[in-house]
Design a protein around this nucleic acid. Structure first.
Lengths: 349, 349
DNA sequence: GAGGCGTGCTAAATCGAATTATCACGTGTC
DNA sequence: GACACGTGATAATTCGATTTAGCACGCCTC
């Protein structure tokens, strides 16, 4: 066995190997395998090349192709925390799905919130010549994107750019609309006294609170000083806030909650006070944390956060930018009301 | 402004640009920037090159380097479901952390359980010349790894190879040890009548059941026919099984559960029957599903699944294989007992 | 002053594909 | 018989780095 044959057996076969096997030049092989139009190759030659490629199990070396073509068919994805939020997985999955469908692969980097890691990660990804970049935030917020992101097509997911940074396209949840959905559900059920156990000053909380007020006003219901009670997004805080509110003689008939954890706290408080949900008290959560909202008794009516959709639309936006198509600067994705068992008509209407 | 200068300004600078700017050959630039030992470059020349590189903001094109060096400093990661399990994120995070520390990036592909997608994903990753591959399963099980995986260094996480497939190194949870931990907790608390609401015939369930029997025997406690009740890993099933068991006059004083969902079902059943946990009934779960085990009242004592550790050890094993170091064929990682509030001494000892 | 040697640097090949510019050959036309 | 033209291929270059082999020069030695 000659050196050449031994080599061809141990190495992955290259285009040259195929060319030699078919008795043609590597140019011909390239033309045939890429179905290059305008290339004139006789049918028999073509067949011989195809057969040789098949027989050798030839697959092009993508690293070489990437260098020549100056594009890597891969996109970089930065997150500031994968596992810190159980939802992040959905975004990653969606981005990966969309990328895969477009023939691309995802290079994933988790910065764990460290800006310096993020910075070197972006550099590293640019050095690898990714076709585009996605930055996904674990919490919905305004932020100043790293200026380096602007070097290639980039898209923000679950956040949006501050006025002073690069104006990258952004895809994030329609918190105002979602908050409206939640509030409207309680209003539609006939509740007139609703208290909002809101989140704590973050952007989603502000948006949802505004929506709550608007819907109440639209329904000509009063929103007095005590109607919005902000606090941390924890079970304990939900419990404490609900407890003090539900002990009032003029207690509300429904509590709108900033998230499912607060709602769970409220549920526990209601039970501790001998109130039955939803008969004595209606409850609406937010986030639709599967493991939580669907596991308690009664199961929580809540609004889902459209994480998969966020990821998909983010990725599709990025692919459009890469393709040179125009895209919307901002895209809000609406979650949906998940009807379960924690809402009923008020007992004394 | 000459063509050349304009080019250098718009393109990312290459090594040639740096060489020209410093008035040397690109070989010299390569030697200096890579600190190649044995290369003889005068200190002034070296400084000039460094200055030029700095001034132009030169960063090497990694695609070109990868082609020349025949290694991509990246690893491929396949999962059969990212978001289906909230834990998968931990494994991904751990793998990415370890890869990053070794100067590598992770190419992530989610197969969603489709073997054909997995197959083409592996091919795609091999075409891109990843240095190694990780396959992570969402459920702990025995499986026949895709034969293609054997083409490069590969490691399995949260699963292990069947006897007939390629024998890849595997890292997975020590279910036997973990099951022992859970059982022992109840035995140590003084319980003598313990029923195991087991999972349904999967590998972890089998391991944990075996461990339960062994610990009981070691403690000279009887394990009669009804002591192990297998069933689905759902809240409902836990509820039903617990209900029928707890209604018996000789009801056990403790229930060991196959996972936290079953345990939650059991908790609800106990409450429905007027039993207090842990006073009347002790409960131990498994998995430590944060959102669930820590949110119910009383909070569940359970055993954690070491997902982060699994990912990290898996990645480190892979890096060792890539480096040509010997590695263990199988590595079991033990979770830990998470003490919370659902275990107490039995009332009638 | 010829030969040896260390220093400092470069030309050219290489990695594996894609692409541009030609080239050889036969056929048809005037 | 000279020339244009279509067909079927190939040689050579390019992408941007790394690496091997070797060149030019000065200094020292005998």
């Amino acid at each position: 066995m000659g050196d050449e044959q031994r080599d061809a057996a141990s190495r992955r076969p290259t285009m040259r190997d195929v060319a030699r096997a078919a008795g043609v030049s590597s140019t011909a092989v390239s033309f045939v395998l890429n179905d290059r139009e305008g290339a004139r190759i006789a049918p028999e030659t073509r067949a011989r090349i195809l057969a040789a490629a098949e027989r050798l199990g030839f697959r092009p070396n993508l690293t070489a192709r990437q260098l020549r073509l100056q594009q890597t068919q891969s996109i970089g994805m930065l997150t500031d925390g994968i596992a810190s939020s159980p939802f992040a997985g959905q975004i990653i999955r969606a981005v990966q799905d969309a990328a895969w469908e477009s023939g691309r692969l995802v290079l994933l980097v988790n910065t764990d919130g460290h800006t310096d890691v993020g910075r070197s990660a972006v550099r590293e990804l640019l050095d690898r010549r990714v076709d585009g970049l996605i930055f996904a935030s674990t919490v919905t917020r305004e932020l100043a994107p790293l200026p380096e992101l602007a070097a290639v097509p980039s898209v923000l997911i679950n956040c949006f750019p501050a006025a002073d940074g690069p104006q990258l396209p952004a895809v994030y949840p329609a918190e105002h609309a979602g908050g409206g959905l939640a509030a409207q559900r309680l209003i539609d059920a006939g509740h007139r006294e609703i208290v909002y156990l809101a989140g704590d000053g973050d952007w989603p909380a502000l948006q949802r609170t505004a929506a709550f007020r608007e819907r109440m006003q639209d329904a000509r219901l009063p929103v007095d000083a005590g109607a919005v009670v902000p606090g941390p997004y924890t079970i304990d805080s939900g419990y404490e806030r609900a407890r003090s509110i539900l002990q009032r003689p003029d207690r509300p008939t429904a509590l709108l909650c900033g998230n499912d954890r607060i709602a769970l706290g409220a549920l526990l408080a209601a039970q501790a006070l001998g109130l039955t949900v939803p008969e004595d008290l209606s409850l609406v959560g937010y986030d639709d944390q599967e493991e939580l909202a669907g596991s308690v008794h009664p199961r929580l009516t809540t609004v889902s956060l459209p994480f998969y959709e966020l990821g998909r639309q983010g990725a599709e936006t990025l692919l459009s930018v890469i393709a040179g198509e125009p895209v919307a600067a901002r895209r809000e994705v609406v979650g949906e009301l998940v009807e379960r068992d924690s809402v009923a008509a008020p007992r004394h209407p």
